[in-house]
Simulated assay, not measured.
Amino acid sequence: MVNPLTLVFQSLIYPGLFFMIVLIILTQWLARKVTARIQFRRGPVYAGVAGVLQPLADLLKLVVKKDLVNKYSLKASPLIVISLAIGALVVIPSATPLAIQPLHAEYDAIVVLYLLLLIPFGLAYLAAAHPNPYTAIGVGRYIALLLSSEPAYALTILVPVILASRHYGAGYSLYYTSLVSHMLWAISPLKTVSMALATAAGFLGLMSMLMVKPFDTPEAESELYWGMFTELGGPRLALGFFAKFAERIVYPLIYTLLFLGGAWPFTVGDWLPASIIILAKTIAVFTVLTVIDAALPRYKPEQAVRFLWKYLYPASIISLTLALI
Rank of each mutant, 00 (worst) to 15 (best):
V2W: 03
L5Y: 12
T6E: 11
L7Y: 12
L12D: 10
L17T: 08
L23E: 01
L23Q: 06
I25N: 06
L26W: 14
T27W: 05
K33P: 14
V34I: 08
R37E: 04
Q39N: 06
F40I: 02
R42C: 15
V52Y: 10
P55A: 02
P55S: 06
P55H: 07
L59H: 10
L59P: 10
L60F: 11
V63Q: 01
K65T: 15
N70C: 07
S73E: 07
K75I: 08
L79Q: 08
V81E: 03
I82C: 11
S83M: 02
A85M: 06
V91Q: 02
V91P: 06
S94V: 02
I100C: 13
Q101A: 15
Q101E: 14
E106T: 11
A109G: 09
V112K: 08
L117K: 02
G122T: 00
Y125D: 01
A127W: 06
A128I: 05
H130W: 13
T135F: 11
G138Y: 09
G138L: 03
G140I: 01
A144V: 00
L147F: 13
E150C: 07
A152C: 08
A154P: 05
I157A: 13
S165A: 07
S165E: 06
G171Q: 04
Y176T: 13
T177C: 13
L179N: 06
H182C: 11
M183T: 10
P189K: 00
K191T: 12
K191I: 10
A196C: 08
L197W: 04
G202V: 06
L206S: 09
M207Y: 03
M211F: 15
A220L: 10
G227D: 03
G227A: 05
E231D: 11
P235M: 09
L239I: 10
K244T: 09
F245I: 01
A246M: 04
A246C: 04
L253Q: 07
L257D: 11
L258F: 12
L258M: 11
F259G: 11
W264L: 02
P265M: 00
P265E: 00
V268Q: 01
G269W: 10
D270Y: 15
D270L: 14
L272E: 03
A274L: 05
A274G: 03
I278L: 01
L279H: 00
L279K: 09
A284K: 01
F286S: 12
T287M: 10
T287V: 03
V288T: 05
V288F: 07
A294L: 09
A304F: 08
Y311L: 03
Y313F: 14
A315N: 05
T321G: 10
L324P: 13
L324H: 12
